[in-house]
């Protein structure tokens, strides 16, 4: 029972990161029907941006809530700007061409970011500084939860509620929903749809960057290709929840995180070694595509953002 609780805690921690990243995939898909393959790399970029902010401003030496907040928000802002630039200079010029063209552009963009970072920072992992004191808290039995796990969970939930509020209560959020449903109708309302699309990239990128900084508080090793596997899993999470569906992305992220750690904890009993951890998401992807291609919360009439 203790290990189960422990695996669940670990699973939900990593799952909240997947959820944060999955939201960006799902929003961009909802609005442009584009799978933004470079999105996982924005998560990596967010971690590096946070690393640079934290080390250059000396937050590493004196852990504090302010240092953490500045690093988090700064990294989110940088990623938002990069996300908008990618949309403006890579995706917008090819938007009028076929889906295949934009897809290839996205794959190219992903490789470009990855190897640009290898070029600048080398492939050697860096160690992200601990920005807040980290302690383990023992729960009942032997299960423990670390303060950085609590931090990940709480900050991701706050960000997801913030996103929910933006999308459902603000004017720009309603415009995002309008654009995702009918681009030309949205233009006829006087909505600058290019701005709304750029804003969507900014939001998604900021959330991914938050995921990068938060992960680094839990697992401090960062490297330029760290976004590939995490990005793919988050993409699977978005598909599992129903791509284009916001609550679906969150649910998918948490489920993938939980499934992954449960396989690590219990897979041995059914002959699945814990080294299969990374395969779990893809097994789930295959099952979803076979059994419920629209995803758990997706359907043909489902709202797409």
């Amino acid at each position: 029972m203790d290990t189960f609780v422990q695996q669940l805690i670990n699973g939900l921690t990593i799952g909240s990161i997947y959820a944060l990243i999955a939201l960006g995939y799902t929003m961009v898909y909802g609005i442009l029907r584009l799978i933004n393959f470079a999105h996982g790399d924005i998560y990596m970029l967010g971690a590096y941006a946070g690393f640079i902010i934290a080390t250059s401003m000396g937050f590493a030496a004196n852990p504090s809530a302010i240092g953490f907040a500045v690093t988090l928000v700064g990294s989110m802002a940088i990623a938002a700007a990069v996300g908008m630039a990618i949309e403006r200079f890579a995706y917008r010029p090819v938007r009028k061409y076929s889906k295949m063209t934009t897809l290839i552009t996205a794959i190219g963009m992903s490789l470009f970011i990855e190897y640009l970072f290898v070029f600048i920072f080398s492939g050697t992992p860096r160690s992200f500084p601990q920005l807040l004191p980290n302690e383990n808290i023992t729960l009942f039995g032997n299960a423990t939860i670390s303060t950085s796990q609590i931090l990940i969970f709480v900050v991701s939930m706050l960000l997801m509620f913030l996103l929910q509020w933006i999308i459902y209560k603000t004017k720009i959020g309603k415009a995002m929903r309008a654009v995702s449903f009918n681009l030309n109708s949205a233009k006829l309302m006087g909505i600058n749809t290019n701005f709304v699309i750029a804003f969507t990239f900014a939001l998604g990128s900021a959330l991914a960057a938050a995921g990068g900084v938060l992960t680094a508080q839990y697992n401090p090793k960062i490297e330029p290709l760290m976004g590939i596997m995490t990005g793919l899993k988050a993409f699977v999470a978005a598909v599992l929840g129903g791509i284009g569906n916001i609550p679906g992305a969150v649910l998918g992220g948490l489920l993938i995180g939980a499934a992954e750690t449960l396989v690590v904890g219990y897979g041995g009993y059914i002959g699945v070694p814990s080294t299969f951890r990374d395969a779990v998401a893809f097994a789930i992807l295959i099952l979803v595509l076979l059994l419920r291609p629209a995803g758990l919360l997706g359907s043909n009439v489902q709202e797409k953002v």
Partner: peptide
């Protein structure tokens, strides 16, 4: 061209 995913009121707000 109504926004099927928005309420009637939200559609008017978009107007």
């Amino acid at each position: 061209g109504v926004f099927a995913n928005l309420s009637v009121r939200e559609n008017l707000e978009m107007g």
